[in-house]
Design a protein around this nucleic acid. Structure first.
Lengths: 191, 191
DNA sequence: GTCTATACGAGGATAGAC
DNA sequence: GTCTATCCTCGTATAGAC
């Protein structure tokens, strides 16, 4: 049951960043929550930037795995879209918005390596969505009027925006749901 | 040409918050940029929370005025929608996202008074958009399938999300434009 | 209103013992 | 790997002179 300290640090840090952003969490916060000392965290992640960079990288890699899992299921594109949306929705259920959405707000404050990780995150997500939309198009279930790439970008913007709105309504998941259903009504079916 | 110090502080602070968020700007930053001392800022705004609360309040009031101005023009609903969208777009041109979008990311860190100001911001914006959509509906230019309130909420989510995406692409206004045109193509016409 | 001076704690980070 | 101790800077805030 017990995992190694580095991963414990990453887990706690992820939660904190998703709630407070880059500038408002500290090594002291993490140390307190885990029950170790600040210096121990510096052993695993020498600087805050090292930690956050690893955070984004891991977050992205796990998302890619989840997307791959969705992709290889033998279900309709609509159901795959639903599962994708649920990746974002699930976070909200625990009062957490997307790590990369949060950090994008802090974009100007971050060093260029972390910025690059964020760009990769959005690029990867967009590519995956583009593939999904293309499959749906070819199967004749959707008709993307313009380009699938643009449609993908739009869906990502929507997910991020809907999360923000939900947060401003005290993490009201229903607000998120309403917006998503409205915008994706032609692309979803019940799961 | 010279304005009073309090307003100068608010102006600089607004710019900083929209770029770095609540936790990553300081009185020292503002003081430096204006050319006064930290203590002088405390005279005008005793605490950081006082300053930010006033920031949001003023930002909202100015937005309301701009919306009122758009509303009373004798132009089509589509053109009014375009002007509304441009309120958000204009900020991006100067590498600034919406103050309230930024602060919503920091929502958990803020005190309840500031949170309330933010809620008011979204509530006011949503109401205004709802009115616009209703007028467009009644004039027969749009057909909002579901509720106009929901449609309004959706547009706001979209604007916030599109801004975030643009920021992650180094404040690429084109990314913002593409998403907006895609989503509002049936609700806009060229300005 | 603005300044200097200062208090006080927090934040990021390192050295060196265990 | 984790600890104690420590450094140094920054951030928020106040007191009191000008």
């Amino acid at each position: 049951m017990k995992q190694n300290t580095a991963q414990q640090i990453l887990d706690v840090a992820q939660s904190m960043v998703r709630n407070r952003g880059y500038s408002a969490f500290s090594y002291a916060d993490i140390a307190k929550q885990i029950g170790i000392r600040k210096a121990s965290i510096h052993y695993h992640f020498p600087s805050k930037d090292d930690l956050v960079k690893e955070l984004v990288k891991q977050y992205r890699e796990i998302l890619v795995k989840k997307c791959f899992y969705i992709e290889q299921q033998k279900i309709t594109p609509q159901k795959q879209m639903r599962q994708f949306v649920n990746l974002y929705r699930d976070g909200l259920e625990n009062d957490q918005i997307c790590l990369c959405g949060m950090l994008t707000a802090d974009f100007v404050v971050l060093n260029s390596e972390i910025q690059a990780e964020l760009k990769t995150f959005f690029s990867v997500t967009e590519s995956w969505l583009t593939k999904l939309l293309t499959r749906g198009n070819e199967a004749g279930v959707w008709k993307c009027i313009q380009s699938v790439e643009l449609e993908a970008k739009t869906i990502i913007a929507m997910l991020q925006g809907a999360q923000l709105l939900a947060r401003a309504a005290d993490n009201n998941v229903e607000a998120f749901d309403q917006v998503i259903e409205e915008l994706l009504k032609d692309k979803l079916e019940n799961n």
